[in-house]
Design a protein around this nucleic acid. Sequence first.
DNA 1: ACACCAGTTTACGTTAACGTCAAGTCCTTT
DNA 2: AAAGGACTTGACGTTAACGTAAACTGGTGT
Lengths: 131, 131
Amino acid sequence: MVEQPLVSISNLAEEFLITPRTIRYYEEMGLLTPVHHEKMSQRLYGARERARLKLILRGKRLGFSLSEIKEMINLYDIDRTEGLQLERAVAYGEKRLQELEEKIQELTLLKAELLDYHQQFTELMKKCTEE
Amino acid sequence: MVEQPLVSISNLAEEFLITPRTIRYYEEMGLLTPVHHEKMSQRLYGARERARLKLILRGKRLGFSLSEIKEMINLYDIDRTEGLQLERAVAYGEKRLQELEEKIQELTLLKAELLDYHQQFTELMKKCTEE
DNA sequence: ACACCAGTTTACGTTAACGTCAAGTCCTTT
DNA sequence: AAAGGACTTGACGTTAACGTAAACTGGTGT
């Protein structure tokens, strides 16, 4: 057995700059599954939950909903893949990859457009301040 | 004067596969400003509003909130830029461009990770079905 | 023993982004 | 004139993702 650095809910919350309530909500939604110390006293969080939480928060930053995030992080979690067929999981993964690619394309386009406006704008500003 | 193809709210809604209520809500939030036919009878939508609506819906697909979208489309709208200084607008625009770039990076990383899992997964599946 | 603190459950409150329904207006068609 | 259809303005309902507060429990220092 390796020494596992298990932390409490408020420690984890502090580490990620969120509240304990948020962490409990993610558990309630099935996104986290902390271990419980000696028959239901406290929640303890290890490396696995910390990794999952990172994924969740990144997903949030990128504008995904919690249910979308849940699908993504459960997609290739072999423990949870039982039940629905492997083939379906693979097909589903390909669909999500396709969607991600489209999002990247759209974001890139948006950035290019904003950059274009930005340059026109700064150029206009230069001309105005020159005279 | 050029012939302007002005359409009603339900026509516009049908065109973009949304509801009239959604369009009115965007107006209420200050994202759209349709012309009103002969003293407050009906809303009519031209090319400008259609373009704005496109921007709004793309922003939504990318996970931005309506207030974020509002800031972005008003950012380089010269009519609305009056009041706040040009310099501030430019600085703000650069900040948003930076954020967009970070989002693209994160999305690209997420896609790479998912692709990695995906390949491991399909390889595992191949081995299972071979024997 | 008592206070205190960190954690727990339960439950009600809040905001964004609409959905849904009621009631009234305006124009056209029969 | 009456009916029908599209639009209008309220106004209340709904869901996701938490915030917040109350009341309870369980270990710890004094």
